[in-house]
């Protein structure tokens, strides 16, 4: 039996009838066309599918779409505003925090959650905070640099931070 799921994704409201077994990541990609959220491992380990659900980083492959009923989600598509990259996105660009880019949306969303919890993390705290995300290209060094750089930008301009948790465009 199908169930109604009404969500707010990147500030826009959506409503669909879905099968209970539909994973949230498939709902985002196939029903909403938001393909920026990637599926990496399919075993809840790699974090490529990380999004924010009511402000908390969650692996969208490990949640059913029906569980998102009434919740507010932010995906990578919700990060840039008015053609301007979010400071975390800009930092990944500037610091070369990616090579193939497949894991990047998940890293950026996990980093957004990390910086919301801890605006000035140490290198150890960044590494611990991103332990749920795997990258097979970079060796993580430039990812850590990117998060450090984003932390600096965001503490200098606090308004940039608020847009992430609000999740609106």
């Amino acid at each position: 039996m199908k169930h109604k799921v009404a969500t707010t994704v990147n500030g826009r409201q959506h409503e669909h009838e879905v099968e209970p077994r539909l994973l949230l990541v498939h709902y985002l990609r196939d029903n909403l066309g938001l393909t920026g959220t990637h599926i990496g491992c399919d075993t809840s380990q790699c974090g490529a599918c990380t999004i924010l659900v009511d402000g908390k980083a969650v692996k969208s492959c490990t949640m059913f779409a029906v569980q998102a009923e009434g919740r507010s989600l932010v995906t990578i598509e919700g990060m840039a505003k008015g053609g301007e990259l979010h400071p975390i996105q800009q930092a990944f660009w500037d610091e070369h925090g990616l090579q193939c880019g497949y894991c990047t949306p998940g890293f950026i969303m996990a980093a957004a959650y990390l910086l919301e919890q801890n605006p000035n993390p140490t290198e150890d705290e960044i590494r611990k905070g991103l332990e749920g995300n795997l990258c097979r290209c970079t060796g993580y060094v430039n990812i850590v640099k990117a998060v450090q750089s984003a932390a600096k930008t965001m503490s200098a301009t606090p308004a940039k931070k608020a847009t992430v948790t609000a999740g609106g465009n």
Binding site: S44, G47, T50, K56, A57, V58, K59, T62, M63, A110, Y113, L114, G129, L130, E131, G132, N133
Partner: peptide, 9 residues
């Protein structure tokens, strides 16, 4: 237990 994403759920 797990990682941040796992601990959130």
């Amino acid at each position: 237990v797990g990682d941040n994403q796992v601990r959130n759920m």
